[in-house]
Design a protein around this nucleic acid. Sequence first.
DNA 1: CTGAAAGCGCTTACAG
DNA 2: CTGAAAGCGCTTACAG
Lengths: 352, 352
Amino acid sequence: MKKYRKLSGVKEIARLADVSIGTVDRVIHNRSGVSAKTKSKIETIIKQLNYQPNILASRLASGKVYRLAVLIPRGSEKTDFWDAPLKGIKRAEEEIKQYGISVATFFFDLNDKTSFIASTEQIKKQKRYDGVLMAPSFVKESLSFIRYCRDQSIPFVFIDSNIEVSGSLSYIGPPLFQSGFLGARLCTFGMKKTKKVLFITISKEKNRYNYSKIEEGFKNYFFENNVDHDLVKLTITDTEKESVFRNLEKAFVKHPDIEVIFVTNSRVFSVAQFLETKKYKQIHLVGYDFSKENQNYLKSGLIDFLICHKPEEQGYRGLMSLYHHLALHLPVDPMYFMPIDIVTKENQDFYR
Amino acid sequence: MKKYRKLSGVKEIARLADVSIGTVDRVIHNRSGVSAKTKSKIETIIKQLNYQPNILASRLASGKVYRLAVLIPRGSEKTDFWDAPLKGIKRAEEEIKQYGISVATFFFDLNDKTSFIASTEQIKKQKRYDGVLMAPSFVKESLSFIRYCRDQSIPFVFIDSNIEVSGSLSYIGPPLFQSGFLGARLCTFGMKKTKKVLFITISKEKNRYNYSKIEEGFKNYFFENNVDHDLVKLTITDTEKESVFRNLEKAFVKHPDIEVIFVTNSRVFSVAQFLETKKYKQIHLVGYDFSKENQNYLKSGLIDFLICHKPEEQGYRGLMSLYHHLALHLPVDPMYFMPIDIVTKENQDFYR
DNA sequence: CTGAAAGCGCTTACAG
DNA sequence: CTGAAAGCGCTTACAG
C-alpha cells in the first residue's frame, strides 16, 4: 500500500518537447492543428518514453458516453437460448457502465422478419448509437442494415452467426463445421459396426447457413474416418410439438433401426420428449445448447451429449469488444471462435 | 458520443449534508473523526442517492499501489501445466497494472518442499505484500504460511487445490470428485459388457488429496450406475519414463486384458508413449490437462479424452479476485469451481 | 498553430 | 471534529 508516483505522462512529454500539454494531447489523438515539426518532435518523445496513456484519467476527464445498440432475438417460451447472450451482455454492461458506456437493447422475433426490420429502423431513426452488437439472423435484412452502419461509420459486431463479406469489427461465435464434426464423433463413439444415424434440423427457416455448415462438418467426419454408416436426413419446418412428433413417428416407421439421433439446434429437447413418450430409451441423442429444457433431459439421461458454444460469453465478449474498440482503442480480434464444449450429465452442474 | 455529466457524487452529497467533501470521504471510508450525528446524516443521504463511488476517480486520486505476491510451482520440462495459470496471471496483470496493481511471482519446485518454504520466507521477509495468490501444494507448509497471512491480515487466494479450514478469501479450482466421476463415464462410454480399467496415478507425492478425491468420484460412478467393471489400481511414484514403462509393463503382464486406462493427472502422455511404443492402439486412454505433450497424443489419437479445468482461467481469476477485493472492494466468491471440460481430437483446436 | 486554465470525481495532507 | 486546497493524468473549450 505504499504510495508511488511517476511523473505525469502528458506533462512529462510536454516538458521534454517544450510545448504545452494541450499540444501533446493533439498529437496523441491525431487531431489537426499541430505543425509537422512539433508533431514529429512529440511523436519521437512518445516513442522514446514508450508512453501508455492512462485510461482511467482519460475516461474520467472526457466524460464521453458511448451508446451501444444491441440487436438480438428475444428469448421465447420455446427456447431460452437467447437469454444467455443477454445475460452476458448485461454482465458486461454492469462492468463497464461506470466507464461511460450505455446500452440499449432491441429484440426481434426469430419467426418474424418484419420485427427485425422494425428494430433496425428504430436504431437508425434514433441516430445516436456509436456501436452495434447484433445477431445477423436474417441475412438479407442484416446486409441492408450493415450498409447503414458502414455509411455512418458505426462499428458493428456479429454474434452467434456470421455474414462473411461485411466489414464487421468482429465475429464472435462457434466454429460450425468443426462443431458438426465433433457431433458426428459423439454420435458414433464406441461404435464398431454400422449405425443408422438420424440427422434432424428443426427450424422454420429453411437453408440456414448455420445448419448447413454443421451438416458439412458432420458428414465430413464419416468421410474422413471411413466410418461405415447410414445417414437419414430429416428437416422439420414446423417447430410445434405435434409436428415434430408426427415427423419423428414417420421417420421411425420408415427406419425402425435408428440408433442415434443428432439434432442441429436447441430443439433437441422436443426429440427427447418424443423418445421419452415412446420409451425409446436405448437410442442415443446428441444436440445443441444448454437451455433449461435440454438440461433436464440431460440430467434424466435422455440426451447423451449437448454441444455448447458459451452463449453467455458470446454476449459478454460481443459488448466488451465494442467497448475495447471505442473507449479503450484496443485492437479487437476480427474472428473470435468459441470453444466447442461437450456437456454431459456428469459435468453439467459446473458448466457456465 | 454526446456529452453527459451527472452532478459529482461526493460534491452532491456534501451539498445535501451541508458539509465538506472531506467529511463525506471520511464517512465513505469509515475513517474516524466524524461526529455520530454528521456521520448518520451523510449515511442517510448516501443511501437515498444510492451512491456508487467512481472507481476511476478513486484510483486515480489515491495513487495507491497494491502489491500482490504469487506463489506457484514452476513449469518444468516434464509438464508445462503450470505455464497456463502463469499465463492467466500475466494476462490479469497486464489488464490491471495501470490501475495500481503490482505483481511479484515466486516459484517453487513441486518435488522440493524446501523450495516452497524458501519462497514463503522470502515473501514474509519483504513485508510488503497486500495479497497472496498461491497453490497450496504442500499442506503443512501452506498452513504455516497461512497463519502468517492471517496474522498480518493479508488476504490469500488458493488455486488448483484447496485447504478447507483456512479463512482464505477464495478457492478457485476444479470440483475433483465430479471430475473423477466424469472420467469414469468417459472410460466406460458405450461399453455394454464388463471392462477392465487400469486406474493410474503417477506422482512423487503419495496420498495427495487431489488424487484421492478424483479416485472417490471415479469409483462412485461405477457404484451409482451399477456398471460391472474390474478396476486395477496402479500408483507410480517415480515419474521418470523408464519407471513408468516398467510399471506399465508389469501391469500388462498381470492383466493382459486391460481395455481402458485412466490417468489422474497430466502425466497421461507418458502412458500414451508407452502404448505407442507397444502398439497397443486399441486401448482407450483418458487423462488430465491440456499440456503440449498431451495435445499431441490427443491429435494422434492415442489419448481419447482429456479432462481440463481451465488452468489459465484459474490464474487469471485468482489474481482478479484479489484485485476486486483490495482495490474495488467488490465481494468475491469464497468458492469458484471451474467447469469440467472434455477435450477431444475434434475440439482441441478451439480449446483455451 | 499553440497555450493557459478549468474541470472530471475522487483522495490526501494540512490547518484549525 | 471539520474544511479548504492541491492534485491524480487526462480532456475540453477558449483565447490568441
